[in-house]
């Protein structure tokens, strides 16, 4: 049986005058209904590009999909016509962006923006669409929703604005919801509320949720599975529990070690040395090798393949087993 959404060996380049940057280098992953996949990585790792590639909202140019497939319900959406792809947006796959203030159009009321898709895509009349917008706003727990229908984005607080974004994404009952760093711009208490809201909605609506984040702490409570990205590749995939317990990739391990933890009080935090690679000049061999604490000569020459290191677990490290076993 095919997955609800599946990426197969996706390659994306950014072609600019300065040269070609290989931003995605063979990304493969999948998500199913009712499941939350977290895509984790530092900025420039390709996680947002992955999300945009799925949505089909990459800026082309400069972005070019070099190869690979994105299967939605078994169909390759990259092979579809632009019109057919557009039909999928919102109704099948929807997205919540990271900075709601800039992602919402400043000159239209939130009611108008939430109801826009309903009017345009479903031909609802204005009144009915606004009614539905109120329901959606209530669903994402915006207090006094009806009274705020005519307000503009800048009149909302950050958390409320993000709820508006979510309401807007939910308008057409998507089966997949991609949330791209939905809480980055928010303060910590609000972050948790938004995460809880997303988890709750996923549960209620039976959607697949792809959560894109750089924050391991955020995903722990929400995600079912995690895909860790580095330099345009998924370097490790695992379910959350296993990954936290026994990471199978040195980068993941370093990330985990850099989180302050109550149970390891007193120990100095570990910091990952070096900088993420320049995507125009990805080092040969394993792209992580210049920063890797357990790097070996072969890491400089051979690109490690993704190998299964357990049930539902993949790692793209030459020494995956050793990392997993804690022997490296």
């Amino acid at each position: 049986m095919s997955h609800l959404l599946e990426l197969q060996d996706l390659h994306v380049d950014f072609r600019t005058r300065e040269g070609v940057a290989q931003v995605l280098n063979g990304v493969s992953c999948h998500v199913d209904a009712g499941e939350t996949l977290a895509i984790l990585g530092e900025s420039g790792s390709g996680k947002s590009v992955t999300a945009q590639a799925i949505m089909g909202i990459l800026d082309m140019p400069p972005a070019v999909v070099r190869s690979g497939r994105i299967l939605y319900q078994g169909q390759d959406i990259l092979a579809m016509s632009e019109n057919a792809r557009r039909e999928l947006r919102g109704t099948q796959i929807a997205m919540v962006f990271q900075d709601a203030l800039s992602a919402l159009n400043p000159v239209f009321t939130v009611g108008w923006q939430i109801s826009e898709a309903l009017r345009v895509r479903q031909g609802m009349d204005r009144g009915a669409a606004l009614e539905r917008a109120v329901e959606l706003m209530e669903r994402v727990k915006i207090p006094a929703a009806r009274a705020r229908l005519q307000d503009y984005p800048h009149q909302f607080s950050g958390g409320m604005r993000q709820r508006v974004m979510i309401a807007m994404a939910l308008a057409l009952h998507p089966k997949v919801l991609i949330a791209d760093e939905p809480t980055t711009a928010l303060d910590v208490t609000v972050q948790a509320q938004i995460m809880d809201l997303l988890a709750e909605l996923k549960q209620q609506l039976g959607m697949a949720l792809i959560l894109i984040t750089h924050d391991l702490g955020v995903v722990a409570s929400v995600a079912d599975r995690i895909a860790v990205m580095y330099a345009g590749r998924i370097v490790e995939q695992s379910d959350v529990y296993e990954l936290y317990r026994r990471p199978a990739y040195p980068y993941t391990r370093a990330l985990l070690e850099s989180i302050p933890r109550l149970d390891r009080g007193g120990e100095p935090l570990k910091v990952i040395r070096g900088l993420p690679p320049n995507l125009q000049r990805i080092p040969p061999g394993c792209p992580f090798h210049p920063r890797c604490p357990i790097e070996q000569p072969r890491c400089r020459e051979l690109l490690p393949p993704e190998v299964a290191v357990g049930p539902q677990r993949l790692s793209a490290c030459h020494r995956a087993q050793e990392v997993l076993n804690g022997t490296a």
């Binding site: 945009q52 919402l104 974004m165 807007m168 308008a171």
Partner: peptide, 26 residues
């Protein structure tokens, strides 16, 4: 290039509508 254009296209709006309504107004 602004973010709200990206949002608008993620709603599945046509480019024509995005330009004529969202971009033009701003």
């Amino acid at each position: 290039r602004s973010d709200y254009v990206r949002t608008a296209s993620s709603k599945g709006l046509t480019r024509r509508r995005i330009v004529a309504v969202h971009v033009l107004r701003n």
